[in-house]
Amino acid sequence: MEKRLSVMIVLLMVAATIFAGGKQETQAPVTAPASAPAVTATYDSTFKGDLAFGGSTTVDPIITAAIEEWKELYPNVHISYEGVGSSTGIKGVLAGTYSLGAASRELKAAEAASGAVTTAVALDAIAVVVNSNSVSLSNLSVEDVAKIYAGEITNWKELGGADSSIVVFNRDEASGTYETFEKKVMGKTEFMKAASVTTGNGDMAAKVGATPNAIGYVGLGFISEKGLKPLSLNGVEASIKNVYNGTYAVQRNLNVVFTELGKIEDAFVNYILSKDGQDIVADLDFIPLP
């Protein structure tokens, strides 16, 4: 019995060393030219610790990519990001569970009153997407989209498509994407109660991509997911260009949220706002700040 145990422990240690070996991917190569990374904040070598951030699933890719790039400058700082949704993220920031949050919407009055503050780190457009395999349409008017989400239009044939019931996917109410969509598309019209609720951009993309006759909405960084076809609204494509020139109206700020910025968090936010950080934003198909 003991012999087997020690064999297993040895195997485990061997496995650990193999995996540790696979770590070499990000080391600088032997004879590469010394191209210093464009450091914007002053490099503080005392930065270290475990930090917890959390919030919007839309902003998740930006924060995660920034964390990874930033880790090369500060390898002793371990940051984890939980994609729990804008509202839960803001709550967490106010409760102290997260030292930095992210939200894909602006603060509500109550949240601001409790001490939450935001800084925009990127712009985003919300694209209306449909299931590419079954929905033939590629464009809708904003009014028609609102009517679909209000439950007034229920069949694709009413819009020139096939004769099938529209399957509507909405977001949960903790979502900033939900809020922005409500404000900019629905306006005064109320959402129908019968829509299915999805829990994140990823979940929405998955469900719309896989369900025939489905319609949904996601942040711009998610429109190329499998099975999705982004619609143009009133003839205007959801694209970076159209956000900058103002023709695509369903746009919003992507924010980081905090009550007070610690030194490390401050450096991190500055990094996202720097040219490097904004390049990351662009790489991920989001829209850098103008």
Partner: peptide
């Protein structure tokens, strides 16, 4: 890395890959 550090495991990873549509 430490008793209090967060650490993703396989089942959580599957969940994240799916939920974030990565």
């Amino acid at each position: 890395s430490s008793p209090t550090s967060s650490a993703r495991v396989l089942s959580l990873h599957i969940y994240n890959l799916f939920a974030e549509a990565i």
